[in-house]
Simulated assay, not measured.
Amino acid sequence: MTVPPLPAADRRRLRRLLSSPSAVAGLALLAVVLAAALSAGWVFPADPLEMATEPLLWPGRDAAFPLGSDMLGRDILAGLFHGARASLLIAGVSTALAVVLGVAGGVTAGYFGGRADRLFGTLTTFFLTIPSFLFALAIVAVVQPSVWKIALAIGITSWPALGRLVRAEVLRLRHGDMVLASEAVGASHARIIIEDILPNTLTPVLVSASLMVATAILTESSLAFLGLADPNVASWGNMVGAGREVLRTDWYVCALPGLAIVLTVLALNLLGDGLATAFDPREGR
């Protein structure tokens, strides 16, 4: 079975993406984080929340625990690997939910207008009136924190900005020549949306999604720092929150997971910049 070649436009976008230093750096950093998340169960099969060595073992003192241990004797390196899995899972699920809600709402409001557009405007105004972090904080505080509930809370509060962006793109395309030509030949609304509207909103959705993943990681870490996280799951935010008790004497307990968060968010932002450049229509002229 032969794989069909990529269209010329997609090949140009891929070349522009791979020629962007920021995109390559972001992809490299993100690949390291993904590799850690995928291999966590194999490299560190034991429970990362169990005591593995003496408490507050500094990095470099024991080759078996190269990054040391926290105040409960838990292996920090194992926590970083398993924390990558939890943080990326929450960020991925919440971003996927936000993209589905934002694209569905933005396309419906921009394409059909009228009552749907007014309802969409009311909903987005309501959600944007309250800071998304405080909204997610309120939701998680009411329910029992778990990985899936935190992901749902972040996703539900993150879609309005993307929805408005998609709505603006759909309004621009709604009365364009491409859509008018499809209407002239009798194409259904579903076919116009799927074949003409959605492919042309891909660029802002991709760029926004990469940034939303970074924001979701920061939000999850902030919730965990405040104690609103699943206590049965190792995450970077939980590690930072637990380490604040010994910040003055054993700063590495906070600094190492904090550095992992910074590098991951940096990677996603660099990738977002590269995607914006690669999919910019002006670059293809």
Results as ranks from 00 to 15, higher is better:
residue 9 A to L: 15
residue 14 L to C: 09
residue 21 P to F: 12
residue 23 A to W: 08
residue 23 A to G: 08
residue 29 L to C: 08
residue 34 L to N: 02
residue 37 A to K: 06
residue 37 A to I: 07
residue 43 V to T: 11
residue 46 A to P: 01
residue 47 D to S: 11
residue 50 E to P: 00
residue 52 A to T: 09
residue 53 T to S: 15
residue 56 L to W: 04
residue 60 G to Y: 06
residue 64 A to M: 12
residue 64 A to G: 15
residue 65 F to D: 02
residue 72 L to H: 11
residue 73 G to V: 05
residue 76 I to T: 06
residue 87 S to Y: 07
residue 97 L to A: 05
residue 98 A to V: 05
residue 98 A to N: 02
residue 107 V to C: 09
residue 114 G to P: 04
residue 118 R to C: 05
residue 122 T to V: 15
residue 123 L to C: 12
residue 129 T to I: 11
residue 129 T to C: 15
residue 129 T to D: 09
residue 131 P to H: 11
residue 139 I to H: 03
residue 142 V to E: 09
residue 142 V to F: 13
residue 144 Q to F: 07
residue 144 Q to K: 14
residue 144 Q to Y: 09
residue 155 G to E: 04
residue 165 L to A: 13
residue 165 L to K: 02
residue 168 A to K: 02
residue 168 A to T: 12
residue 172 R to N: 13
residue 173 L to Y: 01
residue 192 I to Y: 03
residue 197 I to R: 07
residue 197 I to P: 06
residue 203 T to N: 13
residue 205 V to D: 04
residue 206 L to K: 05
residue 206 L to F: 13
residue 214 A to Y: 03
residue 223 L to F: 06
residue 230 D to N: 10
residue 231 P to V: 06
residue 242 A to L: 14
residue 243 G to E: 09
residue 244 R to E: 14
residue 245 E to M: 14
residue 246 V to A: 13
residue 260 A to I: 00
residue 260 A to K: 03
residue 264 T to A: 15
residue 265 V to P: 00
residue 284 G to Y: 08
residue 285 R to S: 11
